[in-house]
């Protein structure tokens, strides 16, 4: 007997947004960064956009698919890079859940983006400290990472909002 997995409209949307996020993720990794380990996390624009339009569950799918498929493409699956990426994604999803699902009345795109950015870097730092570099010297990176997380959080929120404005005009 032939078994069919039903592919819903939602599945297609998740897949296309995830594909977009993966493409950005891979492209971004090709850009040189003045400070190793600091990057804008442009793929998070897609996560934010999807969160804004379709809700948290949808955003979680897109984000986790991006981390998994992105790492397969980059050949970092199950490597330290992957676990850092995953921990960052999980932490920012958690913060998005709290801010977006529970406190949506008070917090919008900017607040979510900044909080997600900071959660992302802090989770990565703590996981790196816990698993890979168990030396408290790594904490010296805290201000660098927090600053980057906040600035890129603002940056990504501005981009997301302008994309969202265009989308809502055309769609």
């Amino acid at each position: 007997m032939e078994k069919n997995i039903e592919i819903t409209e939602e599945d297609r949307k998740i897949a296309s947004f995830a594909a977009l996020a993966i493409a950005i993720h891979v492209l971004e990794s090709g850009f040189p960064s003045p400070v190793p380990g600091i990057k804008p996390g442009l793929a998070n624009i897609i996560t934010l956009l999807v969160l804004f339009r379709y809700g948290w569950r949808f955003a979680a799918w897109v984000s986790l698919l991006r981390v998994t498929a992105g790492s397969l493409l980059m050949g970092t699956f199950m490597s330290p890079t992957f676990f850092l990426s995953l921990s960052g994604a999980l932490a920012s999803l958690l913060s998005m859940w709290v801010l977006w699902t529970v406190m949506r009345r008070w917090v919008g795109l900017l607040g979510v983006s900044i909080t997600a950015g900071v959660s992302h870097v802090m989770a990565q730092l703590l996981v790196a400290w816990w698993l890979f570099i168990p030396h408290s010297g790594i904490l010296v990176l805290t201000p660098v990472l927090i600053t980057a997380g906040i600035l890129f959080g603002i940056f990504n929120a501005i981009i997301t909002s302008s994309i969202e404005n265009r989308l809502s005009r055309t769609l």
Partner: peptide, 20 residues
């Protein structure tokens, strides 16, 4: 531009204080 809710201002101000 971005629609700012009260919580956004709160997060923005708090995070800008957090940097220094």
């Amino acid at each position: 531009m971005i629609e700012m809710k009260p919580g956004d201002w709160l997060v923005l101000i708090f995070s800008l204080l957090l940097i220094p």
